[in-house]
Simulated scan of single mutants.
Amino acid sequence: MTSETTYVHAALLDVLGYRHRLSQDRQSGSLDFKDALQRAMTVLSNFNEAEFSYQAISDTIIVTCARRDGFVELLKVLKKVVLGFLAEGLFVRGGVTYSPHFKSSHVTYSHALAVAHELESKTAIYPRVVIDHNILEMFKVANETKSITDAELICERNGVHFLNIIDPDNWAQAYKWAREMFAREKTFLLRKEQEFLKHSWFEEYLFNSPHRKPDVERYIPTMTLLRPDPPLPSARPPTTEPVAAMQEFAQRAGGLRPSTPLPSRKTKANSRNKKRKQLP
């Protein structure tokens, strides 16, 4: 490593559903997805570039902070970015780490981005931004965790720490955005379990938040037990008499008038007996 290589907090974010939305634009001949990306990215334009740097390439967004004590501020930036994309109907998944990083106009050499990418692709799984546990250990050893816990920007489950984007003021809005996104994509999600799981996890995240509204219902249907289909309604009750059934068929086909009964076997036998009696 050169002397110019420094440790930075680095976040690598992946915009989920990028190819699907791009395909929709190609098929419809519109620029809706491009416009949504531009609106979401305006959040980054208001940040202090002296503290944070960012770049966006296709479906990937990279945000770095060179200040060791800028970790909480970086999380606040990422929270705004994730919410900005959610407002445009887009989920974001990512990873955050603190590792060596070097970038010039020609070369990017970064352990930080490699680790962040690994967290995003292998650990995050759902629409969340996973935080390297080594960052928390670093601040814990230095007894500097109070500012982190006070900010309430980190959740933990099963030993995995990830960015908390929900607070008392935005729960209802985040719920509305997520619900609208699911409603738009419901048909596309049918039988696509990996994509469906992202929505299911995010709903679970919302309703596990201490800031959830008690009178709000879930928007994803729960599992149901398979039941037999109801019987189809019959136009008229079926008849059990074979002669009546034949008459009904003939009437529909136009072969017999309603007043013309079909001769039964007994009628035919009586007719033959009468003819025999009339013979000399």
Rank of each mutant, 00 (worst) to 15 (best):
H161N: 14
I148K: 02
L44G: 15
T224M: 11
L225P: 00
G89W: 01
P242C: 07
E241N: 15
K275A: 13
Y7I: 09
L75F: 03
K198E: 14
T42K: 08
A172P: 00
Y98P: 00
P168Q: 09
T187M: 10
S53R: 12
T108H: 06
K275Y: 00
S259N: 02
L226K: 14
H101E: 00
I148H: 00
T260M: 09
S147E: 10
H211A: 08
L113K: 00
L262Y: 06
A114I: 12
T42F: 04
F162C: 08
A56K: 14
F33G: 05
K275F: 02
R272H: 12
E4T: 09
A142S: 13
L279H: 02
T224S: 10
L279G: 06
P233R: 05
L225I: 13
G29C: 02
N158V: 02
N48Y: 01
L226I: 14
Q55T: 14
L12M: 15
P214L: 13
H106G: 08
G254E: 12
V82I: 08
T64E: 05
T64K: 03
V141G: 00
G255M: 10
L90E: 01
P238F: 00
E137K: 08
R128P: 04
P258G: 13
D132T: 11
H133Y: 03
P221H: 09
G95I: 13
A40K: 06
R19H: 05
K122W: 01
L119N: 05
A36V: 03
P127K: 11
M246T: 09
E217K: 15
P221L: 14
F196H: 10
V82L: 08
T64S: 08
N208L: 15
G95A: 00
A116F: 04
V72Y: 04
A178C: 15
T145S: 06
P100S: 05
P100R: 11
E152Y: 00
K80H: 11
L74W: 00
L163Y: 05
E217F: 12
A172Y: 03
A114W: 01
G94T: 07
R67Y: 06
Q55K: 13
